[in-house]
Computed example of a mutant assay.
Amino acid sequence: MANFSIKTDLLKLQGAFVTNLKGKTATKRCLIIPVDESGLFVGEKGVYLNMTAIEMENPKFSETHCVKVSLDKEKFEALTEEQRRALPIIGGMKQLERRPTPQMNITSTVDGTQAVDDDDLPF
C-alpha cells in the first residue's frame, strides 16, 4: 500500500483569514475559519473537514491528485453548475517514494579480526 503526502492551503477555505489574537499573556497569530461557510462539520469529538482527492489526468510536477472540500449531498446539489466548478482546489497530493534501505557489509570487527560471511548461520 502506498503512502501519500498531502498539502492543504487552509486560507482557500471560504472566509478563512489570519489575524493576531491577544490573550492574557501573549499575542498569537491565528487562523480563523468560519465553520458554517467553509464546509467544516462540528461533531461530538471534533471539528472535521471532509476532503476529496481527485486524480489528475495530466499531472504537473509531482502531484498526482488535487484536493477539494467534499460537501454533503444536500449542499452540493443546491449549488449551480457554475458554483460547483468554482469550488477551490485547496491542495495537492503525491505518492511518497520509498527509499531502499542501505545494506551494510561488515568486513571486520572492532578488534581487527575478519568477520565470517556464512549463509548457514541460523540468525
Rank of each mutant, 00 (worst) to 15 (best):
F41Y: 09
A53V: 03
L96G: 07
K75W: 04
Q95V: 01
D36R: 14
E44C: 05
Y48S: 01
Y48K: 04
S5R: 12
A78L: 08
T101M: 14
L11Q: 12
N20P: 10
K68P: 06
L11M: 13
R98K: 14
R84N: 03
A2I: 05
E37Y: 07
A53P: 01
D9I: 03
Q114V: 02
I32Y: 01
T101E: 15
P59V: 05
L71Y: 13
V116C: 11
L13I: 08
Q83S: 03
G92P: 05
Y48I: 00
T64K: 09
R99H: 04
R99D: 13
V67G: 10
E97H: 04
P59H: 05
K22I: 03
K45W: 14
E55Y: 04
L10P: 03
G91W: 15
Q14P: 10
R99N: 13
G91M: 13
L40N: 00
F76K: 04
A53M: 02
A26H: 04
T25Q: 01
P100Q: 13
A26I: 04
E77M: 02
Y48F: 08
V18R: 09
Y48H: 00
V110C: 06
I90A: 00
M56E: 14
M104V: 15
I54D: 15
G92W: 09
T107F: 12
L21V: 07
V35Q: 01
K24Q: 15
L31V: 06
L79C: 06
D9Q: 07
K12P: 10
E63N: 08
F123I: 07
D117S: 09
I54H: 10
D119A: 07
F61Y: 14
M56S: 11
D120M: 07
I32S: 02
F4L: 07
F123A: 08
G91H: 12
V47F: 02
L11G: 08
T27F: 00
E97K: 06
K28I: 01
I32G: 02
A26M: 05
C30N: 09
N50G: 04
C66R: 06
K28Q: 10
I89W: 02
G43R: 08
M51R: 11
